[in-house]
Write a protein that binds this DNA or RNA. Structure first.
Length: 385
DNA sequence: AACTTTGGCAACCGCAAGCTC
DNA sequence: TGAGCTTGCGGTTGCCAAAGT
């Protein structure tokens, strides 16, 4: 690839920006917008490369940047998102309005990472160091499940961020609908800042819940008996008291049902996680095809992708039980005990919990302890912080 | 007061993905 | 289709000021 270096020309200035340079850059962007960054320096009369200008603008000069000390809320958000996303600073930054990824990255490296280390928590794994070292035989599966949790959440957050960006640029009915969906999902995401760990099953299963609920209310599936979430025979998709599905047998979808599922999935949890679901299920992806009936949803690459995916489910009459098994396998959780997880009940041996509960419980307790320490130290001036 | 170490942060570097032609 | 270009991202560096000796 003949990629030309950014600052190949001799004579281009590097290093700290002067107030005069800042003024030139601000004035030019204020009047013309940045346009092509590569062409900007010459037009603005700057002896800088375009990349340097872009960095200066995005990390310092942009008017919507909040500077100064990070609030406790922001710290909590960073720590929790980092546990889920790792060093994906741009994704984390989307949840911290007016903070740049560079600023968050610096703050993590200079403050938060050290704090966690002092607390005996591995800032990479977010586990107590002793646990991280002794993650032995019995927990390997749990660790894998936890990894899946992080991957799912990561994919979802990235999709959210992408959709938010896109929604600012594109305006069509589907995008607007997605934008509102993203906002709703972000509201859910903000609960990450609370000392409660959301079950990784939540969004996916909400999609299923929404799907079945909408399908029955829309008459796509006949409802025998009542309007609640119980499912009629011969299908045996049941919902527990907390409203989460327990698929026990095969359900076949026609194209209309598939479309309804797609729509309700978007409504329930956004496109990103559905896409990730299908990514995790090669059987779906392998059978992708095109269909005019579902192309009405194809306003964006992602919606097209996932509508096609679910058409593939339809065409091959893939048993939903198989899909749900895949969900469970990916998540490592059957969500039978959603309430106890959400309520923070202590898990004990013998409980009917999913395979990932041990790790999830530890995870939850970890967050609580982290946040308690953060809160305590901020109020008492503890040397820990 | 002079020197060294540490902390904080802006900026740079290189890679990769997406876009355009 | 693929080369070249643009942009975004994450890791790293280097400068400067504060703190420590």
């Amino acid at each position: 690839m003949g990629r030309s270096p950014c600052c190949e020309k001799v004579g281009l200035k590097k290093g700290p920006w002067t107030p005069e340079e800042d003024q030139k850059l601000l004035a030019y962007i204020g009047e013309h917008g940045h346009g092509s960054w590569r062409a900007l320096p010459a037009k603005a009369g700057l002896q800088r490369c375009g990349k340097s200008c872009r960095l200066r603008w995005t990390n310092y000069l942009r008017p919507d940047i909040k500077r100064g000390k990070f609030s406790l809320q922001e710290e909590q958000t960073i720590i929790q998102l980092h546990a889920l996303l790792g060093n994906r600073w741009s994704a984390i930054a989307t949840h911290l309005p007016k903070r740049t990824d560079n600023e968050i990255k610096n703050y993590w490296n200079t403050h938060l990472k050290k704090r966690l280390t002092k607390m005996g928590i591995d800032p990479v794994t977010h586990k107590p160091k002793s646990n991280a070292l002794s993650s032995g035989s019995g927990h390997s599966k749990d660790s894998a499940n936890l990894s899946h949790m992080a991957q799912w959440e990561s994919a979802r957050l990235e999709a959210e961020a992408r959709l938010v960006r896109e929604s600012k640029l594109v305006s069509n009915p589907i995008q607007q609908q997605l934008s509102s969906t993203v906002l709703a999902v972000q509201n859910i995401s903000t609960t990450l800042a609370q000392p409660v760990v959301l079950s990784p099953c939540l969004d996916v299963l909400k999609a299923w819940q929404g799907f079945w609920s909408n399908s029955t209310s829309a008459g796509i599936f006949p409802v025998a008996g009542n309007d609640d979430l119980e499912f009629p025979t011969p299908t045996t998709l049941n919902f527990s008291e907390n409203g989460f599905p327990d698929i026990q047998s095969t359900v076949e979808l026609n194209e209309n049902q598939t479309l309804e599922f797609a729509k309700s999935s978007v409504t329930a949890c956004g496109v990103g996680i559905i896409k990730e679901v299908c990514t995790q299920m090669p059987a779906l992806k392998e059978r992708l095809d095109h269909t005019t009936a579902l192309q009405e949803m194809s306003y964006s690459t992602e919606s097209a992708w996932f509508s096609e995916s679910y058409r593939a489910v339809n065409e091959n009459i893939m048993p939903l039980s198989n899909i749900m098994d895949d969900f469970k396998g990916i998540l490592g959780c059957n969500c039978d005990d959603q309430n106890s997880l959400m309520a923070g009940d202590k898990l004990e041996n013998g409980d009917k919990n999913c395979s990932g509960d041990f790790e999830e419980s530890n995870y939850k307790h970890y967050w609580n302890s982290v946040l308690n320490l953060v809160n305590a130290s901020s109020s008492s001036g503890s040397p820990v912080f």
